[in-house]
Design a protein around this nucleic acid. Sequence first.
DNA 1: GATGAATGAGGTTTCATTCAT
DNA 2: TATGAATGAAACCTCATTCAT
Lengths: 181, 181, 181, 181
Amino acid sequence: MATKLFYEKGYHSTTLREIAAGVNIKAGSVYNHFSSKQELLMHIVWTTTKDMLDGAVERLEGVEGSEERLRVFLTWHVEFHASRRLAAQVADVQLNALEKENLAKVLVLRDEHQAIMRELIDAGQKELNWSVEDPAVLTIAILTMCTQVDTWYRENGRLTPSQIGEILVNFTLNSLQADAS
Amino acid sequence: MATKLFYEKGYHSTTLREIAAGVNIKAGSVYNHFSSKQELLMHIVWTTTKDMLDGAVERLEGVEGSEERLRVFLTWHVEFHASRRLAAQVADVQLNALEKENLAKVLVLRDEHQAIMRELIDAGQKELNWSVEDPAVLTIAILTMCTQVDTWYRENGRLTPSQIGEILVNFTLNSLQADAS
Amino acid sequence: MATKLFYEKGYHSTTLREIAAGVNIKAGSVYNHFSSKQELLMHIVWTTTKDMLDGAVERLEGVEGSEERLRVFLTWHVEFHASRRLAAQVADVQLNALEKENLAKVLVLRDEHQAIMRELIDAGQKELNWSVEDPAVLTIAILTMCTQVDTWYRENGRLTPSQIGEILVNFTLNSLQADAS
Amino acid sequence: MATKLFYEKGYHSTTLREIAAGVNIKAGSVYNHFSSKQELLMHIVWTTTKDMLDGAVERLEGVEGSEERLRVFLTWHVEFHASRRLAAQVADVQLNALEKENLAKVLVLRDEHQAIMRELIDAGQKELNWSVEDPAVLTIAILTMCTQVDTWYRENGRLTPSQIGEILVNFTLNSLQADAS
DNA sequence: GATGAATGAGGTTTCATTCAT
DNA sequence: TATGAATGAAACCTCATTCAT
C-alpha cells in the first residue's frame, strides 16, 4: 500500500494518514510497525533492490556461455521490473528521498548489480568478440533501457513481461553480435 | 537555480525560501516573477520539453534517408539530455509533481516526440528492412535508453555528450541493421 | 525508577515507556500498578513530603529547649534532603506538574511543616531573645537554604549529610544568637 | 509572555500556541522571531542569567571592604530575584529543559557568578576573621537562600525587594561576624 | 500480570502564499 | 521590485491510555 502510494504520488507527497488509511488504521498506529516514514521507504527500496540483485545472482548460477548468461540476466531484469513495476520504480525514482546513510547502503547493492552486468559484457567481448564500442556506456545504457520497462509496462497491455524481455534481449544481442567488419 | 534545486531535492522538498535564497531575494519576492511554485515548475518542464521537441524537429528538416534521420534524431536526443541533464531530469522525474492540467499539456509534447521516433522506426523497417521485432516496444526502449543519459552523464566525465551520442546510435543501428536471416 | 527519571528529565519529559523500560516491563503493564502517570507522580510527591513532615515531628518529640529543638528540626531537614535528594527534588520541583487537587493536598503538608519551623523561630525569639529581624522571612529563608541541599549534594562528595547539616545549623544559630546590642 | 507561561506551567507544558496567543499571533508566526521553542527558552535563560551576573559585577566595581562588598553583592542578588522573579525562576528551574549545549553555556555564567561569591567569603574570612565553618558549603547555601526569594516573593506583599534584601544580608552577616570564641 | 497494537489528542514545525509598507 | 511578518493548513511524530489476548 505504501508502495502504491509512493509510486503514485512520490514519497514527499504521500502522507502517513494516507498510508494508514490504506490499511485501515490511524496515522499514529503506523509507528507500531515502522519507526518513521523514512524507514518505511527504506524497507521498500531495500527489499526491492535486494530481490532484484539476489534474483539475478540466483538465475546466473550454473549458466554457461556469455550469450546465455546475458540472456538470463537481462530477461530476469526485465521481468522483474515489469512484474513488480510499482516497487521497482519506487526503488528507482525515490532514491533521492532516502537519507544519506540509507542511500549509501542501497547504492552498494546497485553497484554490485551493475558490476555483474559489466562482467557479462566484458566476458562476451572477450569470448565471442562482441561488438562493444564502449563497455562502460553500454553497460549502463542497456541496463537502464531494461529498467525503464517499469515506467511503461502495463498489466493489461498487449505483451507479457516475458515477451517484452525477449524482445529487449534480442535487440541487445543483435547489436552485440553484429559483424564489426 | 530552481532547476538545480528541483533536480537535487525534488519539487516537494524544495522550498520557495531556498529558491529565493539562490537568487538572493526573499521568498515573498519570488511572486513578483512567478505566480506560484507550480508555475515555476511548469515553466521549467515546459520549456525543456519544448526545446527537446523543437530541436528534434529542426534537426530533421531536410534530412533524407532512414538511417541518417534516425541518427540525427537520436544524436540530438542524447546530446540534449547530457548537456542539459539537470533540466532534462526535472522534466522527466518531476512530471508527477505537475498538476493535472499542466501534466496533460506536457504529455502532448512528449507524445508528439515519441510519435516521431515511432515514424522513424517504421520508415526504416519499411525502407531498409530493419530488424524490428516489435516497433512499439523498441520505440520506447531506445528512447528511454537515450533519455536516461541525463541520469548518469557527468560534465567532467570521460566522454563528451557527442561521443556518448555516437556510441548509443551505433549500438542501436547495429541491432536494427542486423541480418535477420 | 520513576523517581530517578522524573528527577532527571522532569515529569512531562518522562514517558511511560521509559518508566516501564526501567523496570523491564512494557508501557501498558504499568497500569496494572498505577492507574495513571499522574498518580505515580502524586505517590512519589506525597510519600516524600509526608516522610519529611513525619520525620520532623517524630524527631521533635520530647525534645526541650528552643535551640535544641531548632537544631534537631533543621538537622533532620538537611539530612533528609541530602540522603533522599532525588525524591526530595521531585517533590519540590515537580509540584507544578501536579493536578490542582493533588497539589492542594500536598500543600497542606508543606504548610504544616513550615508552620512548625515558624513556631520554632517564634519560640526562640521569645524564650532566648534570638535576633530575628523578620520571623516570616527568616522562616522561609532558612528552610529553603536547607531544602536546596538536595540541589547540590552529591553522594560521593566531600561531606556527609550529617556534616552538612551541622554546618548549616551552626550558621543559622550563629546568626540567631548574635548579640543584637 | 513566554516567560510568564514557562514560569507558570514549565517549558514542556507550555505550547507554542499558548505563547503565540499571548501576543496575539498564531503559532506558526512565532517562527518569524525565534527559530524554535528551545531557542526562545535559551533566550530567556541566557539574558536573565547574564543580567544577574553583569549586575553583580557592575555593583561591585569600586566598592571596598569585605563587609560592604558582600552586602552590595547579596543585596543585588535578592533584589534581582525578587523584582524579576518570573524570569529568574525560569532561568533556575527550567535549566533542565535546555539542550546540552545551551545548558553548558549557561552553566559557565553561573559558575562565574558563584566564584565571585566564593571570593567574597574567602576575603572576609581572611580580612575580618569571619566565622566560616566551611566556605564551599556556605557559599552555595547563602546564595541559594537568596536565590529562592524568587520562589516566595510576591509583588503586592508586605515587604519590598530591598527590605527583604536587607533582612537576608543582616541575617548572613550576623552569622559571619559572630564571635567564634 | 504482561503485552502488542490501536487510538485520539495534541505538539512542534514547515511552508506556500498574502499583503502592507 | 523587495521585504518581513502573518497565516492556515497540514505534516510527522509522540504519548498516555485502552483492551483483547
